[in-house]
Simulated assay, not measured.
Amino acid sequence: MTAGMRPLVVLRGGGDLATGVAWRLQRAGFRIAILELAQPRVVRRAVSAAQAVFFGSHTVEGLRFVATASSHAAAFANGQPWAGIAQPTQTTTAAANVDSQESGAAVPVFIDEHFELQPALNAQVLIDARLKKRGIDTRLDMAPLVIGLGPGFVVGRHCHAVVETQRGHTLGRVYTTQGAAALADTGVPEAVAGHAGARVLRAPCNGEMLAQCEIGALLEPGAVVCTVAGQGVTAPFAGVLRGLMQSGLQVAAGEKIGDVDPRSNPAHCFMISDKALAVAGGALEAVLHASSQ
């Protein structure tokens, strides 16, 4: 890293919570890079950096995320010019070229499931924001400061700090005591305006998911939101389509593929959520606290 450069924070995952963290840390002066899957499984795509994988670039509340080849990782980490690329999943999308002047305001999104870019990026901070909850493969030795978001992470085993992601009195709280962990996953979706499990759309079977509605669409009960292998998935109540996986993905029976919000405010679909910002505040606190020690 060039002398005087801002610290680099790498986030594993580009979903809506990860994007909220990236947005807040970037505004606080940190450089950000995102690592994602080749076919991201995000539901709240409108506010997810992962969407850049499908379309070459994606902007969330003024912050532009750009799909970037792994070969540009070292250049980005060292403050040199780098360039985004258009992904083959959307051949009609123009390449998102990022020059040295613009790159400071854009965030690269690399396809890297197993953090193989660790040597090239040489990040000062690694945040695992994938919300895997189990099968954690992030390790303490991956960066000088490693932070885990949500359940499954244990301080001293996987990371140096854990940020609480469960709504309630402790949302956004930072745990740094050896052996500390976030609240366990309940397996029950958080209630929104009295709707909990019903607001989550799940695949009825294995197969290709094809969207029939756009995120932000107002839905009536029974409206077909998408199909999976030809089977319709319908809105359980009146509301707005808050999230839906990318059309064309192969999904598994029972997998979460969408989310209906009964508050029926389309604008909320395109804003970083209160929860994401609370978690982001915790992540920022963890970074600043560690740097002050």
Rank of each mutant, 00 (worst) to 15 (best):
L126V: 10
I136L: 10
S247D: 05
G187E: 04
R44Q: 13
V42C: 09
P221S: 14
A120R: 14
H114F: 06
G148E: 04
G104A: 11
V260I: 13
G84S: 02
Q101K: 11
R167P: 03
C159I: 04
A96G: 04
T93R: 12
V42Y: 07
F110P: 07
V47Q: 05
D261T: 11
F54D: 08
L284I: 04
Q87E: 13
D128P: 00
L277Y: 08
G56E: 01
N97I: 14
V260Y: 04
T186C: 10
P189V: 04
A120V: 07
P266F: 08
P7V: 06
P151R: 00
W82Y: 12
E214L: 07
Q51P: 07
A286D: 10
T177R: 03
N78R: 14
L241N: 10
V21Y: 00
T89W: 09
Q178D: 15
G4I: 01
H169G: 11
Q118D: 08
L11Y: 06
H289S: 15
K133H: 11
L249K: 10
A143L: 09
A73G: 10
A267S: 13
A203T: 07
E102R: 01
V98R: 00
C205L: 05
V9F: 00
R130P: 13
Q293Y: 13
G239D: 11
H158E: 13
V200E: 12
L121V: 11
P108G: 08
G62Y: 06
G239F: 11
R202S: 12
F55I: 11
L11R: 02
A184Q: 12
A3K: 02
V188C: 03
A182M: 02
A38Q: 13
G168S: 08
R45C: 09
I147H: 05
G15T: 06
S71E: 15
R31E: 01
R263P: 02
V107K: 00
L8K: 08
A191K: 03
C213G: 03
D16Y: 03
L288S: 09
L210W: 01
E285P: 00
H268N: 15
A106L: 05
Q39T: 13
A33E: 10
L8G: 12
K132D: 15
G281T: 09
V162P: 09
Q87H: 14
A253R: 12
H169I: 14
Q212T: 14
A235W: 01
A83P: 00
D141W: 07
L244V: 02
G187W: 03
I272T: 09
P119I: 06
Q178V: 15
Q231T: 10
V225Y: 01
A69G: 12
A33L: 06
H114G: 10
T19Q: 08
L17Y: 06
S291F: 02
E190Q: 12
R44V: 03
S48Q: 03
V66F: 02
A120M: 14
I111Q: 10
G62W: 01
R64Y: 03
H158P: 08
R157V: 14
V43G: 08
I111W: 05
L25E: 09
G197Y: 01
R157C: 09
L17V: 15
H160L: 06
E214G: 13
R139S: 05
R199Y: 03
A198T: 13
D141R: 00
H58A: 05
Q51C: 04
H169V: 15
Q212H: 14
A280K: 00
Q246F: 08
A223D: 15
A28P: 00
G222E: 05
A217R: 07
I136S: 02
L145N: 03
E220Y: 14
C226Y: 06
C269M: 06
